[in-house]
Design a protein around this nucleic acid. Sequence first.
DNA 1: GGCTGTATTCAAAAGTAACTGAAAGTTCCG
DNA 2: CGGAACTTTCAGTTACTTTTGAATACAGCC
Lengths: 171, 171
Amino acid sequence: MQLDEAKDKFIQAWGALGSQWGINRTMAQVHALLLVSPESMSAEEIMSALNISRGNANMNLRALIDWGLVSKEHKAGERREYFFAEKDIWAVAQQVILERRKRELKPVLRVLEDVKAVEGDPESAEVVAFLASIENLHNIVGQADRFLEVVVKSDRNWFFDTLFKIVNRNA
Amino acid sequence: MQLDEAKDKFIQAWGALGSQWGINRTMAQVHALLLVSPESMSAEEIMSALNISRGNANMNLRALIDWGLVSKEHKAGERREYFFAEKDIWAVAQQVILERRKRELKPVLRVLEDVKAVEGDPESAEVVAFLASIENLHNIVGQADRFLEVVVKSDRNWFFDTLFKIVNRNA
DNA sequence: GGCTGTATTCAAAAGTAACTGAAAGTTCCG
DNA sequence: CGGAACTTTCAGTTACTTTTGAATACAGCC
């Protein structure tokens, strides 16, 4: 496999993964492209590598910057901006977890807490079933949230050691 | 808050969460509806509760059955089918992880392995940068995959104890 | 077999999300 | 200040996804 072919295969796969997880496919592709590029790239270069328009490139680069996954730099004597991705994948994972926890997990936890305040006969089958499911869900989502908080805050070595032990203890 | 209001709030939130994670919004809503329903429901009941067409209800119920989250039953003397969700949220979480690992994580791991076979000067900055990122990614995604495999196979009590210890050790 | 009540399918329509490209905005330099 | 080089915005378009509903298939009963 040639390098260009391998890059393209990776970019397509990363785009597909992103879109299956609710991330704009092009945004994931731009991220993939920058992840495997040794140099920072200009908007022009990204546009032609992925065959996308200027507006599209700009929007998705801004979104990636917003997620904390990509930064801009200026090269001496050049006016145009160059973009590069955080290459440390552990840091990338932490950042993605941080954002998704904030954007998606927190709001749903909030709703799970709110709906516990349902009125009505606490003996009725309807209310009992509702509260039972909501409470179970709240426990599990809450536990997952606390675990992910640890992931986001923890040192990579400590975390990987711990994970490794869990995986092997159970093997 | 009245029960109907709370149910609706939960169904909307669950639908929104699903759609942010690449799950059809209606499928997540049907799942939410069945999760908090004390009795199994017919297609008619689901259609009217969510204001969706028969075709839509049928398709999403089948998808939920396919994911292993919902089952059918027949009531004595009735011709129509009734649907109910797995209420054990730990089992639901395991099932969702199982499916997403199979559908999405495995294919991307496969690609990460494949593209390591890139040809070309292993000294060139392009190839070096490409392989470095791919290998880091492969390590992290692989570790996550092995961890999730443990989650899927493990006993809920053991798992929650372990998670609890991790969360508190790091607090 | 034929009839009835239900489930399933799928082509067309509606709805949603993403993309384009050109116009407006910004920055920097002489 | 004027204008070149670039970035940002956004209305209109395109492409994709979801939904509908009517046709079809099926299962059970008489």
